[in-house]
């Protein structure tokens, strides 16, 4: 599903985020990416979503070469990915429903279909009944769950989550991780970047460990 082959990423300022990284994630696999902050976890995920392009090497996602993708093809690649961002990237003046519906609107899904799928996604993350609420009225954990609902609403084959349990207490973090586990169980490929050791142990599965941009 996702394959990195001798991938390096150097930013414009000369900072080396990834150095000669190679690995493969099979379809339906659940993988955690770990490492100290600044180790290149976020960059790794961004390369998968074509938010950044590799400086060297080949990144293949769903058989598409990220480095050689036409700009017009990028949106269609991203529609197969569910992204959970470290900073949530919610629209704060839009309701919970509208935030969740955004990926479906972008894909031109009809209105009644949107209603059904948004409610299903909100149900999965336990936010049913909050449709009309604004994100600011939600707690940090609820905002994270809203972000997850938006990521899964279009039923993507791959879920990429960057520090999904960042500032949450352990109890709450575990419930979030349980959600990812359940997505994995229904066949979704899940990639989670986290620096939280207890979460790594809780998740099980394969771990990719990064240190200063190098895979250990």
């Amino acid at each position: 599903m996702i394959s990195f082959s001798q991938v390096s990423k150097r930013f414009k300022g000369g900072q080396q985020a990834l150095n000669n990284v190679s690995f493969t994630i099979e379809s339906g696999e659940m993988v955690c990416v770990t490492g100290h902050s600044g180790a290149g976890k976020s960059t790794l995920l961004k390369l998968m979503a074509a938010i950044e392009l590799p400086s060297n090497g080949t990144v293949l996602v769903a058989n598409q070469n990220i480095g050689k993708l036409r700009p017009a093809a990028i949106p269609y690649l991203r529609r197969n990915l569910g992204l959970v961002f470290q900073d949530h990237k919610l629209l704060y003046e839009r309701s919970v429903f509208d935030n969740t519906a955004l990926p479906l609107l972008v894909q031109g899904v009809p209105r009644d279909e949107i209603g059904k799928r948004v409610r299903a996604a909100l149900d999965k993350v336990g936010l049913l009944g909050f449709e009309k609420a604004l994100p600011v009225t939600l707690s940090g954990g609820e905002q994270q769950r809203l972000c997850i609902a938006r990521a899964i609403v279009s039923r993507p084959a791959v879920l990429l989550a960057d520090e999904p349990t960042g500032n949450l207490d352990p109890e709450y973090a575990r419930s979030i991780m349980d959600m990812f586990k359940s997505f994995h169980q229904v066949g979704v490929t899940v990639v989670i970047a986290t620096h939280d050791e207890t979460m790594l142990q809780y998740m099980g599965g394969r771990t990719l460990s990064l240190s200063h941009g190098v895979l250990q």
């Binding site: 949106p75 991203r78 955004l102 990926p103 972008v106």
Partner: peptide, 16 residues
């Protein structure tokens, strides 16, 4: 700006 950025990240085409 925020909305455009998020839309781009979740697969909106330029035309959209």
């Amino acid at each position: 700006r925020d909305e455009i950025e998020v839309s781009m990240l979740i697969g909106a085409t330029d035309a959209y």
